[in-house]
Nucleic acid binder design. Structure first.
Length: 425
RNA sequence: GGAGUGGUGGCAGAGUGGCCGAAUGCGCUAGAUUGCUAAUCUGGUGUCUCUUUUAUUGGGGACCGCGGGUUCGAAUCCCGCCCACUCCGCCA
């Protein structure tokens, strides 16, 4: 959410930001409502002030004077109530619109309509050239008895999977490696709920707008399954005012992630690429409202994930996500795409976002600065490792000619000291 | 799921219709005092918002879990919800 004052003072900047993101929103309607609401607010405050002064007199007045006072107060109340009802409606409407105003993207965000116009800013590693007929992760996984998609479909429908044996262990190994790496870098590990209140989804910017992508409980419970640990971790300190010396907060959390993938029918239907449930280790940073510092954090959390991919010996590229592919909440986003031979291309595995105050304003997540002023925090997050997709990359990039799987040295200690797993096919 | 108790400022805790944005204590903070530290004394110490001022400042309004209601007036009374705790039941 943007500051209403900011919108008032920079309407063109906000309009231009929305245009760049290809998100429609009616700034003029907001400004009109805002002006109207403030005018009514002033009048309401005046009426309340009168009410307060005369009300206090009632108690002290002799009975003879009370009647006149009460009559006067009754008149005030009539006007007040009429105004107040309208004011409530106005404010509710204003808030509704405000929730949908997109954050203003950074100048460094490239123009573009969708992901095809994201700008590659870095390449690392060489895609491997196979001197044998390479299998895709499904073929390899099924041949090794590591992957069972058919039975998973019986349990839970399409886009689900069962991992078995060494692949199940490998999932745990990657997650634990990611977690350990982040803890070594000073991030505080958290285990958090994956079922959160509706309010938390709004606070982190997923609602309104993303309802179709989230699994919701029925109306017995006001709960949603999160698509990422970003949600509960970023919201952990909502409604709090942090002391300056407690910032920055650096958190890392592993969680299950749930995505409905509505509207993706027929897209990426094979294998583990687009699934309803996966494991992910996520990093979240909460710090002071300093744009330069946010940029430093952004670089740092991007680097963390690059370091992980390099340790896993997986070729990747970093893209600067263009306006049209950016979500409403982000100032800027870098995606990391990892080489996946079966796609003959790079597939998105990480997403590093910078939000400024957009989330913290919704979450009422604040701190007291050096002058004692209360301000909204800046928030950022990035994937460290997301299980299903990182397994695709590991299986496909590190398969051997015999159909076995070579493990990068970083994972060897997490797989019982083995350097290769699976039998020769 | 049933029965009960409770939710007040950073924390503890008083407040049961106007004298309450809220006692008191702790914490924090500034100053005084003391060779230093500790202790003691004095002052300050919530958030949001409108308005005024170049700014400091001044004035108004709102907020005592959340949302409604009663009343001229609500932290206080009533209703709904959320949360916590205790007991019972059920269950991994």
């Amino acid at each position: 959410m943007l500051d209403l004052k900011f919108i008032r003072q920079n309407p063109d900047l906000v309009r231009e930001g929305a245009r760049k993101k290809r998100i429609s929103c009616d700034i003029d309607a907001i400004l009109r409502l805002d002006e109207d609401a403030r005018a009514r607010g002033v009048e309401l405050d005046q009426l309340r002030a009168e009410q307060n002064t005369f009300g206090a007199l009632v108690a002290k007045s002799p009975p003879a004077e009370k009647k006149a006072l009460l009559e006067r107060l009754a008149a005030i109340k009539v006007r007040h109530n009429a105004l107040e009802v309208g004011q409530r409606e106005l404010e509710a409407e204003l808030h509704k619109l405000l929730l949908r105003v997109p954050n203003v993207p950074a100048d460094a965000v490239p123009e573009g309509k969708d992901d095809s116009e994201n700008v590659v800013i870095k390449l690392w590693g060489e895609p491997r050239k196979f001197e044998f007929a390479a299998r895709d992760h499904v073929a390899l996984g099924e041949a090794q008895g590591w992957l069972d998609i058919e039975r998973a479909a019986r349990l839970s429908g399409s886009r689900n999977y069962v991992l078995k044996g060494d692949l199940s262990l490998l999932e745990g190994a990657v997650m634990r490696f990611a977690l350990d790496m982040m803890v070594a870098r000073g991030f505080v590990p958290l285990s958090v709920p994956t079922l959160v209140r509706n309010e938390i989804m709004v606070g982190t910017g997923y609602f309104p707008g993303g309802e179709d992508q989230a699994y919701r409980c029925d109306d017995r419970d006001d709960l949603c399954l999160v698509g990422t640990a970003e949600v509960p971790v970023t919201a952990l300190h909502m409604d709090e005012i942090h002391r300056l010396e407690d910032l920055p907060l650096r958190y890392v959390a592993q969680s299950s992630c749930y995505r409905r993938e509505a509207g993706a029918a027929g897209k990426d239907t094979r294998g583990l690429y687009r699934v309803h449930q996966f494991q992910k280790v996520e990093q979240v940073v909460i710090d002071v409202a300093d744009p330069a510092r946010s940029i430093e954090h952004h670089q740092a959390i991007l680097q963390n994930s690059e370091d992980l991919l390099q340790a896993l010996e997986l070729p990747y590229r970093v893209v600067n996500v263009c306006g049209g592919d950016l979500g409403a909440p982000q100032i800027q986003k870098f995606d990391i795409e990892t080489w996946m031979p079966s796609r003959a291309g790079y597939g998105e595995t990480h997403s590093a976002s910078r939000f400024h105050e957009y989330q913290s304003r919704r979450l009422n997540l604040r701190y007291r600065d050096g002058e004692g002023k209360v301000r909204f925090c800046h928030t950022l997050n990035n994937t460290v490792a997301a299980s299903a997709r990182i397994l695709i990359a590991l299986l496909e990039n590190h398969q051997t000619a015999e159909g076995r799987l070579r493990l990068p040295p970083a994972l060897v200690p997490y797989m019982g000291g083995r350097q290769v797993v699976g039998r020769a096919l």
